[in-house]
Design a protein around this nucleic acid. Sequence first.
DNA 1: GCAGTTTGTTCGGGAGAACCAAACAATTAT
DNA 2: ATAATTGTTTGGTTCTCCCGAACAAACTGC
Lengths: 255, 255
Amino acid sequence: MEKSESPRTVEAVETALGIIEYLQREEQAGVTELANELGRSKGTIHSHLATLVQSDYLTKKGSKYRLSLRYLELGETVKDRLGYYGVIADELDDLAKESGELAQFATEEHGMAVYLYKARGEKAVESASTIGKREYPHCISLGKAILAHLPRKRVGAIIDRNGLKAYTPQTITTREALFDELETIRERGYAIDNEEKIKGLKCIAAPVTSPNGDVLGAVSVSGPSSRMQGKRFEEELPQMVTRSANVIEINIQFS
Amino acid sequence: MEKSESPRTVEAVETALGIIEYLQREEQAGVTELANELGRSKGTIHSHLATLVQSDYLTKKGSKYRLSLRYLELGETVKDRLGYYGVIADELDDLAKESGELAQFATEEHGMAVYLYKARGEKAVESASTIGKREYPHCISLGKAILAHLPRKRVGAIIDRNGLKAYTPQTITTREALFDELETIRERGYAIDNEEKIKGLKCIAAPVTSPNGDVLGAVSVSGPSSRMQGKRFEEELPQMVTRSANVIEINIQFS
DNA sequence: GCAGTTTGTTCGGGAGAACCAAACAATTAT
DNA sequence: ATAATTGTTTGGTTCTCCCGAACAAACTGC
């Protein structure tokens, strides 16, 4: 089961990445603040900062450090390499317009659901998620739609890694319940988030798979529970979402 | 003049960043390839890769490593912090439509011009530049428009850092010629790229400044020399570009 | 299917660098 | 002006980063 031991890592790199992560949360910081936060001496942090500035990963204004614009380039590179970014953008814009709600696309990486795009329809609810944001997959429709099409042992590993944190009374918090739910999703063809992450918010998500069967991501619409009920929630929206997922699948093949 | 000595840097971090940079160019690579490229042993690279994967900066598929989606999030964070991204996007879309050409916005960081947005008009030429791409400022209109509004000693430092590489016979390659050109730009109110970077391509760029006088970036239109001449090149387009720059300046204040 | 080659992984040991602590300089606050 | 805080520099020591080599795994060619 277990690998003999965890592989060696480079501590100096971990502190440098810690600086980047802190500056992602905090916008700007000085030497002392970072030293306290990361539990290193001021001198150490100082040379790390010098390294990151020299390599263009940070900028220094006065005595405060911030993330540089280099991450823009890296972000674009990653986006371009996905290959299907334009396809999902176009289709989600349509879906948002047609449904009037918030339409989103996410994929999976390292056991987390990663939002790649969002489009806002006429009445779309606000959402904290932005492009690149990562979320636990077990409590959102996008995540569950993806998990439903991953190998069972892969899902097990993800649960072990993440746990099953509860956000609302509806959140699925046991392994068995989640596997049952995934089974239901496979049969039904789409996933539902019934206020499992945020009270008052319901979502519907359908998976996008490649020709050879593995899942590339999922499409969803989200809206307030007041609008997400009856025939609209049980027929119309599911149909829109699954249709969008299919359109994306087809267009990816020819792009 | 010179600081006593260059500050200390952390070599381990430099190799880790070297890995990231290589994977930005190459899409994917294995241990041996990276070890050769960066002049380190396979064992060393291996533990660096383990560190970067563990912290979610790389993904491992089989025995190849790639950049992870984390850079999407970092890119979005940086974009949001600019504050005026939406403003330039809206205005450049208009400018591209009105002019029919390629409209771009760039700002300055570490002595380089960094493209932040581009919008393509009806007849827009193709361009290799993408969001986040960095370019030497001395040979493009956007760069010169920005340089014209930086402190003289800052410009001097940038020249020292970058040099003045020639791309075409028109490229400005001497310090004096560049300072003269910047003076002309300040008087005229906008900058011209007369095939100084790419043969057959001409551009016009106007600076965007903040109320307190420092330059935030510049707006440009680019087109083939055949279309960039006569009254259109000397009056109409300059007017459009400077007007766009002004609109952006105003909107930034109220956003 | 089997030897040969290449690539990834593990590990001991030594040299060097990352880290700390403390002193100094610069900036800000009182 | 003085005190307090923060940034910068520097020696010295410990620890870790790195190398090299051995091992394992994957791929190649025959």
